[in-house]
Simulated scan of single mutants.
Amino acid sequence: MSQLLLNLRHVPEDEADEVRALLEGNAIAWYETEPNRWGISAGAIWIREDGQFERARALMDEYQAQRGAAARQAWAAARREGTARTFWAQLRHSPLRVLLILIGIILCAALSLWPLLLAAW
């Protein structure tokens, strides 16, 4: 029976391509389901044979560890160079946008806490 290896929701296309190539390169039988029209399912990569799932999972874990390490190194390099998108960099770049987002967060918090505040009085 097929087993889910990777849900493609919020997965960048380059990562999905690399996973497909990883499976192909290691002769693991897989197939992909497409996302549906209404956004309920984002699509996925499935392993066809149960016997290959453990090997695919081990390869996937190794790949994700390498990708995570590369992302952390890229983030550290961007911070050293001063090009990282931090809160303060966002605030300097687009203060109105940041202000509107903060106002939205405060409004959501206020609306969520309103019944609690009314009950306390």
Rank of each mutant, 00 (worst) to 15 (best):
residue 102 L to C: 14
residue 82 G to P: 07
residue 94 S to T: 12
residue 89 A to S: 14
residue 90 Q to M: 15
residue 91 L to A: 13
residue 104 G to Y: 04
residue 112 S to Q: 06
residue 109 A to D: 03
residue 121 W to Q: 08
residue 114 W to A: 15
residue 109 A to C: 14
residue 60 M to P: 08
residue 59 L to T: 07
residue 118 L to S: 12
residue 94 S to L: 05
residue 72 R to W: 00
residue 64 Q to A: 13
residue 85 R to I: 08
residue 61 D to W: 01
residue 77 A to S: 11
residue 88 W to H: 11
residue 78 A to E: 08
residue 110 A to I: 03
residue 113 L to T: 15
residue 121 W to D: 14
residue 81 E to V: 02
residue 106 I to S: 12
residue 73 Q to K: 12
residue 56 A to C: 05
residue 82 G to E: 13
residue 116 L to P: 02
residue 104 G to I: 08
residue 49 E to K: 13
residue 112 S to Y: 03
residue 94 S to M: 08
residue 67 R to A: 14
residue 91 L to S: 09
residue 49 E to V: 01
residue 119 A to M: 04
residue 55 R to G: 07
residue 100 L to H: 03
residue 56 A to P: 07
residue 111 L to H: 10
residue 72 R to N: 10
residue 115 P to H: 01
residue 78 A to S: 15
residue 89 A to Y: 10
residue 67 R to M: 07
residue 67 R to E: 15
residue 97 R to G: 02
residue 112 S to F: 11
residue 115 P to Q: 05
residue 70 A to L: 10
residue 92 R to E: 15
residue 92 R to Q: 09
residue 95 P to E: 00
residue 84 A to F: 04
residue 73 Q to I: 01
residue 108 C to F: 12
residue 97 R to S: 14
residue 118 L to I: 12
residue 56 A to L: 01
residue 70 A to M: 08
residue 110 A to H: 01
residue 106 I to L: 13
residue 52 Q to L: 01
residue 109 A to G: 07
residue 64 Q to R: 15
residue 81 E to M: 07
residue 71 A to C: 06
residue 81 E to A: 14
residue 118 L to N: 12
residue 78 A to R: 09
residue 69 A to V: 05
residue 118 L to M: 09
residue 55 R to Y: 10
residue 56 A to E: 07
residue 87 F to Q: 09
residue 121 W to P: 02
residue 111 L to A: 13
residue 77 A to V: 05
residue 110 A to Y: 10
residue 79 R to L: 11
residue 73 Q to S: 13
residue 81 E to R: 10
residue 93 H to T: 15
residue 114 W to P: 02
residue 97 R to A: 14
residue 60 M to L: 10
residue 84 A to R: 06
residue 65 A to D: 15
residue 92 R to V: 06
residue 85 R to L: 05
residue 53 F to N: 02
residue 74 A to I: 03
residue 71 A to I: 08
residue 49 E to S: 06
residue 90 Q to A: 14
residue 61 D to N: 09
residue 51 G to Q: 12
residue 94 S to Q: 15
residue 63 Y to H: 15
residue 75 W to Y: 05
residue 62 E to P: 00
residue 50 D to M: 04
residue 63 Y to M: 09
residue 55 R to V: 07
